[in-house]
C-alpha cells in the first residue's frame, strides 16, 4: 500500500493536522522542560528531525527484511542508534547547546512520536514518502517547540533568539521551568479556539 499524498501534503500533515505536540500530544517532556527559548526549540527540533528522518528512511529501506515478530525491537534499535549518533555529533560540535538540552537529547529514544511514525507509516511506505513524512513530523515538532519557545522567550525575557525586542522583561514566570505546563495548556486551548472559530465560520 502506498500513500497517494504528495510530498508537500505529507509535510504539511506533520506540521498542522497531526502536529506531534499540539495534536497528537506526544513528546511532551521537552515541550514543557526546555521550550524556554526559540533556540532551544530549534536545536531539539533539528535533533528530532534528523532522528525521525533517518529512522524513517532506514526502516522504510529495510522494511522487507525486518521480521514482523521483531519489529518493535528493530525500531528501538534503529532509533537508539540514530539518537546516539546525533547525541555524539551535538556533543562534539555544539557543546554549549548540548549542555543546555541536557538529558533530553538522549531521551529522544523514548519519544513515542518516532516509534509511532515508524509503525504507522515508514514500515509500509516507500523511502521517499517516509522521508517526507519524517520531514513533516520533525518540522511539526520543531514548529511546536519553536512557537512555544517564541511565546516563552518573548514574554519571559523580552527577547527573540536572544535579541532584545521589547527592551524589558515582561514576566519572569514564562521562563520558569514549571510554567511550561501552563504555556502548553494555554497554547493548546488557543489552537482549539482557532479551530472552533474556523469551523464555526465555515459552517456559517
Amino acid at each position: 500500500m502506498a500513500t497517494d499524498k504528495t510530498s508537500l501534503q505529507l509535510v504539511t500533515n506533520g506540521i498542522l493536522n497531526e502536529n506531534p505536540i499540539f495534536r497528537l500530544v506526544l513528546s511532551m517532556c521537552p515541550a514543557v522542560g526546555i521550550s524556554t527559548t526559540v533556540m532551544n526549540g530549534f536545536m531539539l527540533g533539528v535533533a528530532v528531525l534528523f532522528v525521525q528522518v533517518f529512522s524513517s528512511c532506514t526502516i522504510s529501506l529495510f522494511k522487507n527484511v525486518i521480521h514482523p515478530r521483531i519489529r518493535i525491537p528493530t525500531y528501538t534499535l534503529t532509533i537508539a542508534t540514530w539518537v546516539t549518533v546525533i547525541d555524539m555529533v551535538l556533543a562534539a560540535y555544539m557543546p554549549v547547546a548540548y549542555a543546555k538540552m541536557g538529558i533530553f537529547i538522549k531521551l529522544i529514544v523514548a519519544f513515542a512520536i518516532i516509534t509511532m511514525r515508524l509503525e504507522m507509516f515508514a514500515c509500509k511506505e516507500s523511502v521517499t514518502a517516509s522521508f517526507w513524512d519524517g520531514v513533516g513530523m520533525g518540522l511539526g515538532f520543531m514548529f511546536g517547540m519553536m512557537s512555544l519557545g517564541l511565546v516563552r522567550e518573548l514574554l519571559g525575557q523580552g527577547t527573540i533568539l536572544g535579541h532584545d525586542v521589547l527592551g524589558f522583561k515582561p514576566l519572569l514566570f514564562f521562563v520558569l521551568p514549571f510554567a511550561g505546563f501552563f504555556c502548553v495548556g494555554l497554547m493548546m486551548a488557543f489552537f482549539n479556539y482557532i479551530e472552533l472559530a474556523y469551523r464555526r465560520a465555515k459552517r456559517a
Binding site: 521480521h67 525491537p73 534499535l77 542508534t81 555524539m88 555529533v89 562534539a92
Partner: peptide
C-alpha cells in the same frame, strides 16, 4: 534462526554506525 540472524546483523550494523560516529566525533568533542 532467521530472527536471530537478522537481529544480529541489525545489531552489528547499528554497532558499526555508532562506533564510526564515535570515532569521528570523539576527537572533535
Amino acid at each position: 534462526l532467521t530472527i536471530i540472524f537478522r537481529l544480529t546483523v541489525a545489531c552489528l550494523l547499528a554497532g558499526a554506525v555508532m562506533g564510526g560516529a564515535f570515532v569521528l566525533t570523539n576527537q572533535a568533542k
